[in-house]
Amino acid sequence: MTAVNPAIPVNPVIPVNPVARLGATLLLALCLVLTIDWVSASVALVLELVVFVFIRMPARQFWLRTLPVWVAAPLTGVTIALYGRTEGTVFFEFAFARVSEGSITLAIATVLRVLAIGLPAVVLFVTIDPTELADGLAQRLRLPARFVLGALAGMRLISLFLDDWRSLELARRARGVADSGRIRRLAGQAFALFVLSIRRGSTLATAMEARGFGADVQRTWARESPWGAREWLVMAAGLSIGLVAIVAAVASGRWNFIVGP
């Protein structure tokens, strides 16, 4: 038996069914994409940060995992600020770019919304095991077994891409073909990895077919995908954050429905 170190914080999200995490993320995102305003996005983001404290993810892991979201959000805001809808006072104008009060407000709302949607998706999915996700999709959502098992096999092969890339690079260096022409080398190496991936996928498909994974009979599953009050609580939390954000936007008069005029 492995002893649990009490000094290491336990992530309470880890035992939750991956389908519940997926559902909570989708419910929250659905509420936030209905409107483009900074009030709903900021309220949702604040509530999410409070929840993140209780999840107790290590700080280093949190910042490393969510770094792409923190980088993408400001870049999206810059684009919206330059080319978004022009309203009010125009502060800067050059060629097709025009920065105005309306575009800045829209950019702020977009940045906050990207963070509010992207951060919980990363945090909730960072510890998901692909096999548990496949079990949940097949047993709880009743998705076709062929689709689920094929996707699971593909996800398992993703980790091999980096190893294959390193092996190809070392092999080309050993043959002396990687000393010059960096762009051409990368293109040739990418094509070689593409061919290798097709061959490996074909071999895997043949092996899975030989073991009966493509049969039309009702499949059984080695592990049960649990679902209980904990899963409903996670989904309710995601929906509650989204609804509170909507209420705050409506109450403040900042509600801006995406299909409105």
Rank of each mutant, 00 (worst) to 15 (best):
E209R: 15
V10W: 10
R65N: 05
W70L: 14
A121I: 09
V78M: 11
L149F: 10
N17V: 10
D129K: 13
V13P: 01
F125N: 04
V33E: 04
V90M: 08
I241T: 03
V4C: 03
T89Y: 05
S167W: 05
T220Y: 03
V259L: 13
A29D: 00
G214D: 11
L152P: 04
R184S: 13
R166F: 08
P6E: 00
G88C: 02
L196R: 12
I55C: 10
E231M: 02
T25Y: 06
E224T: 15
G154R: 06
R98P: 00
G212N: 05
G212M: 11
S100D: 11
F91H: 15
V71D: 03
T203W: 06
V43S: 07
S159N: 10
G212W: 10
G23Q: 03
F54C: 10
A29L: 07
L64S: 13
V33G: 01
D216L: 12
L162A: 15
F62R: 08
F213R: 04
A107I: 02
G238L: 00
L157H: 12
A72C: 09
R85T: 15
P74I: 09
L112P: 07
P9K: 13
I258Y: 10
R211S: 02
W165F: 14
L67M: 11
T206A: 15
G242T: 05
S252M: 05
E101D: 11
T86A: 15
P9H: 06
T2Q: 12
A134E: 05
E101T: 05
R182A: 11
F161N: 04
M235L: 04
L141R: 11
M235D: 00
L115I: 06
T35P: 04
G136F: 07
A205M: 09
A236K: 03
G154M: 04
L75D: 00
G150S: 11
L82Q: 08
L233T: 12
S100G: 14
F125I: 01
V16N: 12
G181Q: 07
L119K: 05
L22Q: 01
A174I: 08
G188K: 07
F94R: 14
F91E: 05
G242P: 05
I104M: 03
V50P: 08
T220H: 07
D37V: 05
G118S: 07
P58D: 02
P15D: 01
T220D: 13
I104P: 05
A29F: 00
L186R: 07
E87V: 09
A81W: 05
R223E: 11
V69K: 02
R56C: 03
V71I: 15
F92N: 10
R199V: 12
V51L: 15
G150F: 06
I108S: 13
A29W: 01
E209S: 15
I108E: 09
L152H: 08
I55N: 07
V69P: 06
V90D: 08
L106V: 00
V10S: 13
A29V: 02
P226F: 03
T66H: 01
L26V: 15
I183D: 03
V99K: 08
